[in-house]
Design a protein around this nucleic acid. Structure first.
Lengths: 234, 234
DNA sequence: ACCCGCCCTTGACTATTGTCAAACGCCTGG
DNA sequence: CCAGGCGTTTGACAATAGTCAAGGGCGGGT
């Protein structure tokens, strides 16, 4: 694991607060591994033997219902961790995880980690912080699903991707549109229509390339809805 | 705090694993208090000075958006805790809490608790378990919102309230229907229509009294949808 | 006992989203 | 260069849920 990787690990809240020795000893014996797009990391119900840190690429955490449709709980990238919670409930993953863009991940083994938690109270503290963040992100997700239209959710998603908070921006969608759709709780067809609707708000798309004319306007749309929706064409 | 109360506290996962001395010392200085229906316990953005254990009654945790509609993240009753996560992120509540049925609660002060966490690793462990549970419940909520119709969500809610897992059951709805509606991510009108739809599945209502003819059938409906939906009337 | 207010229900209509099918473009492999 | 496949888009339609408005029932207060 080179210094670039260590820097990425350091972005994870869980590891940011640790001394570099503590960090090193946690990572010892966990070499980063490459995973190809499509690969399953674990499935709902599996024994929770490890949690993961993403160094590169994208991973989705989701659940597939009996009726076949899937709910996405999170899509994680460099500097983020996932799968921690499973260590504390029954030792089984409550959801599945799959690589959606070629990835490099570090697996931290649960039994090793659990032991250290008992001996290092400040590690528990950091873990509590990490879990609170996940909780918070799910709370936001529930709020969005309950109170926003699909176009509004898309608007908020685009704003969250934008590198700036003001003015205009150009960005590349980080993964497939159909995954974005599921992540936002809608079907791919609805995502397409969402983009069509946002054209009146100054959003244009070309493949995975998105141009936002005015981020503030888009943010307002995401929060308040179509205050002054224009006609679609022109 | 009498022995009945202590027994209720003991039902909370957070406290179940503690020795009775540890439990007592945590509760010391935190007398249970009565709260009337409608009372606000905290509002989104407030300093997170405490978290709560419910001894009796019901409390909803929710968020109100600028546009006025509210998203409910949980409704808690005897033996449940809420508001813990706020202690670990910025020290602010990410949502509001309000008493929805006259309640008795114990408030545990954050600063006291945080100190003890650092000194008692197994307390952190229990806290991690409690947070995992909340996480899990939100994951379920997201899944339900994304993959189930309003009638299916209602069916699952009723099944979760039923005292038995088989055969027929009679139960009383624990709080207002409009709150149930918000909790399930729909409008009160849709809840009414949900009940109407479930009549064909052997569910009858009279005020807050609900009779379920066959819990298994209702559970199937909640999971798989209307396999063999009958005509509504008769 | 009566009135009033609140909650819940119902109806009619609208808006949003899902479903199904077809077509398009892009990329890859032959 | 062409064929096939996949992901995306579009269209027509159906289903689901929200909106608005009216009415009913129950309980509390006078």
């Amino acid at each position: 694991m080179d210094s670039k990787d260590l820097e990425i690990v350091g972005r994870a809240p869980l590891f940011a607060g640790l001394s570099s020795e503590a960090r090193d000893s946690l990572l010892r014996g966990s070499a980063p591994r490459r995973y190809a797009k499509g690969q399953m990391l674990f499935e709902q119900g599996d024994d929770a033997s490890a949690f993961f840190i993403v160094l590169e690429g994208w991973v989705k955490v989701f659940r597939t219902s009996v009726s076949g449709d899937e709910a996405v709980f999170g899509v994680f990238t460099a500097g983020e961790t996932f799968g921690e919670a499973a260590m504390f409930i029954q030792g089984r993953y409550p959801a599945s995880a799959q690589v959606v863009e070629d990835a490099r991940l570090v697996a931290i083994h649960a039994d090793v980690f659990r032991e250290r938690l008992l001996r290092e109270p400040e590690l528990s503290f950091l873990m509590l912080g990490a879990m609170s963040r996940h909780l918070h992100s799910l709370v936001n997700q529930v709020e969005q699903l309950q109170t926003r239209s699909s176009a509004q959710r898309l608007a908020q998603f685009l704003v969250s991707l934008a590198p700036v908070t003001l003015g205009s921006a150009v960005l590349a969608l980080p993964y497939d549109k159909s995954l974005i759709a599921h992540r936002l709780g809608m079907k791919p067809e609805s995502l397409s229509r969402g983009f069509a609707r946002l054209r009146s708000q100054g959003v244009t798309t070309d493949g995975n390339r998105v141009v936002i004319a005015d981020i503030c306007a888009l943010r307002d749309y995401g929060e308040f809805g179509p205050l002054r929706e224009q006609v679609a064409d022109r």
